[in-house]
């Protein structure tokens, strides 16, 4: 008896798009299996020989990537229907779940496509600006020692600090769409993160005003997909709930004191 041999190649279906607002189309490539192959390696193999299974010579596929160790977030794609980083998406695992020896790779759908698998994640950075996700010191003069941070708070904030602005939480969120103005888990969690920072607290009121506005925390529909797809396992739903609590307290205070 000979065990069925693992196929030497597999197929990759890629959703491509020639530019912004251009129509999308699918292309299929056959790729040779190699040990410890991830999706980035697959895309490199395709770039070296961009010929589709139909035998057509095409432009190499464009994608975005940076660190290749799942800490920068830039290579996030929808792989086999699920959003994740392509650098940590390993071919053997993906093929195990695929039924016909095929892996599908698509760009994220909640951000405008620049080209092929490369999307423009600018909205997330704009949202960080909206919620003032920073510590307000400019370094022009010596402010002396900062306030003390308790270890418990540090622990809590450390988990949220792992955010790499990859966009998985937003891609999976049913409430976050291309057209609406919802901030989404990423920006809300970061606003909470800086509200809890002893120096970052200075801007808490302004952040809460932003979170109370259109597209803010109240638009969250509690589908809780964000926390399940987050590759950094950030307790996003807890951060959203805590931001909601801060807003409730803020609103009650404002109602009775007028500020």
């Amino acid at each position: 008896m000979i065990a069925p041999a693992t196929p030497k190649t597999f197929k990759v279906r890629i959703k491509r798009q020639d530019g912004r607002d251009q129509p999308a189309y699918w292309q299929e490539f056959e790729v040779e299996r190699r040990p410890s192959q991830n999706i980035i390696a697959v895309l490199q193999q395709i770039a070296a020989n961009p010929v589709t299974t139909a035998g057509e010579q095409v432009e190499p596929v464009v994608w975005d990537s940076g660190c290749l160790e799942e800490v920068c977030g830039s290579c996030t794609m929808v792989i086999n229907g699920h959003v994740r980083q392509s650098c940590s998406a390993l071919v053997p695992d993906l093929l195990e779940d695929a039924d016909d020896n095929t892996i599908t790779v698509e760009p994220m759908t909640k951000f405008p496509v620049v080209r092929d698998l490369f999307v423009d994640r600018q909205r997330m950075f704009d949202n960080l600006v909206k919620v003032k996700a920073w510590v307000p010191i400019d370094g022009t003069h010596d402010l002396g020692e900062g306030p003390k941070e308790s270890p418990e708070k540090q622990q809590e904030r450390y988990a949220i600090s792992r955010c790499m602005t990859c966009g998985c939480c937003l891609e999976a969120c049913p409430q976050f769409t291309l057209d609406n103005d919802f901030l989404g888990a990423q920006a809300i969690a970061q606003a909470y993160y800086f509200n809890e920072h002893e120096t970052g607290k200075k801007l808490k009121g302004e952040r809460l005003e932003a979170l109370a506005g259109p597209g803010g925390v109240a638009d969250c529909g509690n589908a809780q997909n964000c926390v399940k797809v987050c590759p950094k396992e950030i307790p996003l739903t807890e951060a959203i709930a805590k931001a909601g609590r801060q807003l409730t307290v803020h609103a009650v205070k404002k109602f009775f004191t007028g500020k």
Binding site: C220, N222, P235, G244
Partner: peptide, 15 residues
Amino acid sequence: TAAISWGLTISTGAM
């Protein structure tokens, strides 16, 4: 969901 939105249940355990 309201308990989360109002900030009553803020931990996964409480939810």
